Simulated assay, not measured.
Amino acid sequence: MTAEVPRGGRVLFIGDSITDAGRDRSCGADLGTGYAMMAGAWFTARHPGHRATFLNRGVSGDRVRDLRARWEQDCLALAPQVVSVLIGINDTWQRYTRDDPTNAADFARDYRHILEGTHRLGARLVLVEPFLVPLDDEQRGWRADLDPKVEVVRKLAAEFDATLVAVDDLFQAAEVDDRVWTRDGVHPTPFGHALIAQAWLRAATPAA
Rank of each mutant, 00 (worst) to 15 (best):
R23G: 06
A162K: 04
R95L: 13
V150T: 07
F191R: 14
L156G: 03
R23S: 10
V176Y: 00
H187E: 04
E138G: 04
A21V: 08
A174V: 08
H119C: 12
A52H: 05
R140E: 15
P6M: 14
R7L: 09
A174R: 11
H119A: 15
R183K: 12
G8L: 06
L31P: 02
A207F: 01
T92V: 15
D184Q: 08
T33W: 03
F13T: 05
V186P: 00
T2H: 03
P130H: 08
D169M: 06
D91W: 01
V11N: 03
G141H: 10
D20V: 08
T102W: 01
I14R: 01
G117M: 09
L127Q: 03
R23F: 05
T44Q: 12
E116K: 13
L125H: 04
D20W: 10
D99F: 11
T44S: 15
H50T: 10
F191C: 07
V165S: 02
T44N: 06
P190V: 08
T205N: 01
D169W: 00
V85M: 02
T2W: 01
E129G: 06
R70H: 07
L78M: 09
A194C: 06
T205A: 15
R140V: 11
A79N: 11
G8P: 04
A45L: 14
A174L: 14
H119D: 10
T53K: 11
G117R: 14
T163I: 05
L121C: 09
G117L: 14
F54C: 05
L86V: 09
A41K: 14
W181G: 10
A207D: 08
A45F: 10
A144P: 00
K149L: 12
F171I: 07
R109W: 04
N56Y: 06
L201C: 11
L132E: 02
S17W: 07
V153F: 03
P48K: 13
T118A: 12
R46D: 11
A157V: 11
G192D: 05
A108F: 01
Q94G: 00
L115C: 09
K155A: 15
L127F: 05
T92Q: 02
V59K: 03
R68P: 00
D178N: 09
L201H: 05
H50G: 09
V64E: 00
G122L: 05
V83T: 13
Y96S: 04
T189K: 02
L31W: 03
H119P: 00
N103P: 09
D20K: 05
A29F: 03
L86N: 08
G34E: 00
L67F: 08
S17M: 06
V128N: 00
S60D: 08
Q73G: 10
W181N: 05
L78W: 07
D100H: 13
D24Q: 07
V133Y: 01
Y96I: 12
F107W: 07
A173I: 06
G34C: 09
A197H: 05
L195M: 15
A204I: 15
E116S: 13
G15D: 04
D137I: 11
F13S: 03
G28Q: 08
L170C: 09
P148W: 07
G32K: 08
T2Q: 13
R183N: 10
E159I: 13
H187I: 07
Q172R: 15
D147T: 15
G88D: 04
N56A: 08
D24Y: 02
